[in-house]
Amino acid sequence: MISAKEVKKIARLSYIKLNEREVEKFSKELSGIVDFFQVLKKIETEKVEPMMGTTELTDVLRQDKAKVCPRANELVKRAPENKDNYFKTKPILER
C-alpha cells in the first residue's frame, strides 16, 4: 500500500505537483502495481549478484580527447531561453 503521504513524497522527489484528486488516484494505482511486485518475493536470490545490464561489456574505452561540436551554438539557440550563446535560467542562488 502506498499512502497519500508517500505519494506526495515521491511526487516531490520527482519535481511533479499533484492535486488531491491525483494523489488519491496515483495512491490507488501505484499500490496495485507495487502489490504485484510481491510475486518476486518467493524467488530465492540470497546468493545472486545484481545485474545492471545485459551486455557483459566492461570498460568501453576511448581516447580522452576533446572534440569540437559543430552544432553547439545551434543547440543553445534552440533552447527555451538563451542569451549570448548561453542557456538562460532563473537564478540558481537565492539573493
Partner: peptide, 12 residues
C-alpha cells in the same frame, strides 16, 4: 508521471 514516481519509489 506514474512511471517517474514509481521509479523514484523503487529507488528510494
Amino acid at each position: 508521471k506514474r512511471r517517474i514516481m514509481l521509479g523514484n519509489y523503487s529507488l528510494s
